[in-house]
Amino acid sequence: MSGRRKPDWLKMRPPSGQEFTGIKQTLREHDLNTVCEEANCPNLGECWSGRGDDGGGTATFMLMGHKCTRSCGFCDVDTGGGEPLDPDEPVNVASAIAEIGLDYVVLTSVDRDDLEGQGAEHFAQTIREIKKRHPGILVEVLIPDFQGDETLVRKIIDADPDVIAHNVETVERLQGHVRDPRAGYEQSLGVLEQVTRESDIYTKTSLMLGLGEYDHEVYQALSDLRETDVDIVTLGQYLQPSRMHLDVEEYVHPAKYRTWQEVAEEELGFLYCASGPMVRSSYKAGELFVDAILRDGKTVEQARREARRASV
């Protein structure tokens, strides 16, 4: 299906604007990577061009280099690893955030299976550096699975970000087809379950659609995630980065995304679901939702109780 013309609802706005240019320049000055660029995110222009009345532009910083030790069939990030970690990166990220003027920041990373500790302490150090320099900023992290090592996940929890995300990516049946063999459905659920069990930090995950999944499999995945007490879920369309990547099996219609949002929020009780063809795991609307509930002073448990009552 990859050769078919994309439907109109998948047309993207090209990057532009003063805010976009300023963020790009600041990132280059501090020698930083973003998943927005490395993964060729379709929302780069929208996010980097600003959030209108809600604040300045937003970017997702990618830590620990631009080469991943894993090779997932959907991902446009370069494969390799072996690069030494930049000890100045935590400070450089914190400094760039101040220059850009963000009040909500997302951190993610490549997988670094080649490193002792898989880079968990470097990730945690970056969180602490941001919190130390900018006490009022909200920090969301999109973490690797750290091969299911609970001591490494605990390092992230102890650094006290405001949201911990980890993506299951696709339904259980397609895991081996879509993701690197070192990843897995149960392993990813285990990471999310540990965060909900050991902390009062909001949890988040993401599913790609259009890879050949069936509706009942999507429903099962959402149910499994709620059973694990995941708070926030995003669903978006898989887009083939190049002919070397997995084919798109279906361009899912926007109406179905609206249905999944209703199922997730009203039936299953997620706190929030961002669902649409252009939605990605780091998505502006989701960040604004988390920003609002955290700055409103609600505890995680209060927000979860309200969601449970609303879904009954």
Rank of each mutant, 00 (worst) to 15 (best):
G52N: 06
Q118T: 07
Y272E: 10
S188V: 07
P135R: 03
P90T: 07
V178Q: 06
I164K: 07
R51N: 12
L102C: 14
P84G: 08
A221F: 09
G297N: 06
D224G: 14
V230T: 14
V312I: 12
T170P: 03
V141R: 02
L115K: 14
L288K: 12
K24F: 12
T203W: 01
L32D: 13
L239Q: 15
Y272T: 06
Y251I: 01
S282Q: 09
E19G: 01
Q187W: 03
L239W: 05
Q125Y: 01
Y257L: 07
S281M: 11
A221T: 15
V153K: 03
N40A: 14
N167D: 10
Q147I: 02
T203V: 03
A255P: 00
D224N: 15
E227V: 13
D8W: 12
M62D: 01
V91D: 10
G55H: 01
D53E: 11
R28D: 15
L107I: 11
L222I: 14
T79F: 14
F123N: 05
E99D: 13
T299Y: 00
L207D: 02
D215I: 06
K204V: 01
E217R: 08
S311P: 03
V195D: 00
D54N: 08
A120C: 08
A159V: 05
T228A: 15
H245C: 01
V290I: 11
W260E: 04
K131D: 00
E193V: 01
D76N: 15
H134T: 02
G101L: 05
R5I: 14
I156N: 02
Q220C: 04
V312E: 13
Y202V: 02
T34F: 09
S223M: 13
R309G: 03
R258G: 06
L27I: 15
N40I: 09
A264D: 06
F20I: 03
L85D: 08
F20D: 14
G184K: 11
C72E: 10
D113H: 02
D180L: 09
K11I: 11
I201C: 05
D114Y: 09
R70C: 08
A183P: 10
Q125P: 00
G184T: 10
P254S: 00
L138Y: 01
T205E: 07
Y272V: 07
G22R: 15
V110E: 09
M1L: 13
P42S: 13
E266Y: 11
L142N: 04
P90W: 05
P42R: 12
F74T: 06
V168P: 04
A98F: 02
E83V: 09
E198K: 06
T126A: 05
S71H: 12
L192I: 06
D86Q: 09
H253Q: 02
S242A: 06
G45T: 09
D180F: 10
E172D: 12
I130D: 00
I293W: 03
S206C: 04
D103L: 04
E193K: 13
G136Q: 08
Y283W: 15
L222K: 13
E213A: 07
F289Y: 14
S2E: 06
G190N: 12
V139P: 01
E287G: 09
E29M: 13
R70Q: 12
R226K: 15
